[in-house]
Design a protein around this nucleic acid. Structure first.
Lengths: 328, 328
DNA sequence: TTGAAAGCGCTAACAG
DNA sequence: CTGTTAGCGCTTTCAA
């Protein structure tokens, strides 16, 4: 590699210990020696080797973050929030991606641990006991964002269930008699961790079943476009689609627009997440802000607490927010 | 930390060298000894310390990637492409973000180098000789994506200038007599590396000035919404806006829609980039695909060549593609 | 105020 | 087939 403390020591005619002291401000050191060392180091463009430092100290000032796809706005916003939080504590973040490949997800976690990151933030697609045990075996501070893994591993998110209930109430308040919960991710429930969607479904069902006069159903298929159209053409009731993700809502709106059906007029529609693509789409979609930035910031906070050996809650909920648009 | 080769050696009653041999398949080793070592390692959940390995070998199998904001679709798609490419070579990528903060950008580069990544992919906001020298001083393989820094540092992108010329021709072909190039980033040309936008502007000017009968102007302000509206209200000519970024186009379309002006009818508009938000917006924006995924993949390829000590071109252009929409 | 020596965990040359 | 030894670059006693 480049210049090492050894080189500097040699040039300055001192020992490596002294050189080290010059950098760390630790222990007594002659002012001139120190200045000389620093000057020479500067001249030679000396840079400490972080691998060596990390190895020696057992600390790397790094956090690992594992998410599946940065193209997803949710993660993009999340990463930014984490980055900012980490930076404020002079930590470095190490982002890794896996394309919903559960094997890779574990590999990424493992590798980050092997690189001795001091803590991990995950938004996992894996689930179940095996995965939970795997994470626990890491013996590293870990905080889960969004898709809960088990009761013990600290988790940060919003109260998805309550949010879904609120949404149903909002929709009913607008006079809809038929509500369809559109949740394609549930089609993958067998393999994938879709905790947040499951929670939303529970909230939906709990609330909607309280109202005898309302008819409802849940769509768990990725073929939702056709199904939605069919539903609309077969019913006479005032129908609203509650989508477990803004993307699905946008997709439906676009599709139905081509069929000359207008959101907010011919049907109602509500999303979930408040992704920023919504800023460019007319009419403005009514949705629920998942507060991903707040959640991520909170998760990072908790992770730092864990790193410092503090006790932390195993479940932390951040307030969500309904965003009124023009589609109900 | 956890279990080390030393522990395993002790337990198996052999030396650390032997343990090492069991893992690396290098040198002769007794089959049973090997199996025993591997079994014990497995049981103890042994994991090599990557910091130590890296320190020893001077290799980390890591690439560093520095971008300014992952919320930007362009980078999001770029990162995914890089990730895939790196993974196929068993490299790990280390993504870091800085919010267009040029000081931080340099710090990130420096830190990645200090962590001994084997190469760097940057899409920089910094520019100029000082920055170029800084990068060269790293003495690491580096490939620049999108915003060129200087003639020597390998760069991958599309032929922005030619693409802009093509776009102008397309617009003229639709009968527009007045073309406005909307390029807010040029407002920041003093501080920021906006190479790609400068190239686009050059292309625009070169092409448009060939046609004496066409009037044109360039908008370099972040207040483009009002200016656009003013222009539309003052001119009688058939006007098109050529936006140096789809985001600006979407913003304009939304704004003008509220003023009851329709894209493709009351005015023409064309974007640049082909971000995937376009999928959800009607009418479909005519634009140019910046091929970010291909560019990123190519950049990673070149970086690997550099890492292997091969010669690489200092400038690589990937074919762009015009996407016909409904807004011209 | 400074230096010698040992060690973080892994690896490789060289002996045996 | 296996072990000894030294060393990657940095840090930290402990002794001078």
């Amino acid at each position: 590699m480049g210049v090492t403390t050894k080189d500097i020591a040699q040039i300055c005619g001192v020992s490596r210990t002294t050189v080290n002291r010059a950098f760390t401000n630790t222990g007594r050191i002659n002012k001139e020696t120190k200045e000389k060392i620093l000057r020479i180091a500067e001249e030679l463009n000396y840079r400490p080797d972080l691998l060596a430092t990390g190895l020696k100290n057992g600390k790397t000032q790094c956090l690992g973050v594992v998410v599946f796809d940065v193209r997803n706005r949710y993660f993009a916003q999340m990463l930014n929030a984490i980055e900012i939080e980490a930076k404020s504590r002079e930590y470095f973040i190490n982002i890794t991606l896996h394309e919903k490949d559960r094997k890779q997800e574990q590999e990424m976690v493992q590798r980050l641990v092997d690189y001795r990151v001091e803590g991990l933030l995950l938004s996992p697609v894996s689930k179940g006991n095996v995965f939970a045990d795997f994470l626990k075996k890491m013996e590293k501070p870990i905080v889960i964002i969004g898709n809960r893994v088990d009761e013990q591993i600290p988790f940060v998110g919003i109260d998805e269930k309550k949010a879904a209930k609120d949404a149903v109430r909002t929709i009913l308040g607008k006079g809809y008699q038929n509500i369809v919960f559109v949740c394609p991710p549930l089609a993958d429930v067998a393999e994938e961790n879709v905790y947040s969607h499951e929670q939303r479904e529970m909230g939906f069902l709990e609330e909607v079943s309280k109202h005898k006069e309302v008819s409802y159903e849940v769509l768990k298929s990725w073929n939702y476009l056709e199904e939605v159209e069919k539903i609309l053409s077969l019913t006479n009731e005032k129908t609203a689609f509650f989508c477990s993700g803004d993307i699905f809502a946008l997709d439906i709106m676009k599709y139905l627009k081509q069929k000359n059906k207008k959101a907010g007029q011919d049907y109602g529609i509500m999303g979930f997440d408040n992704i920023d693509t919504l800023d460019y789409v007319i009419p403005r979609l009514t949705t629920i802000d998942n507060m991903v930035e707040k959640v991520a910031t909170k998760a990072a906070d908790i992770l730092f607490d864990l790193i410092q050996g503090k006790e932390v809650p195993t479940k932390t909920l951040v307030d969500y927010k309904e965003i009124e648009g023009e589609t109900l």
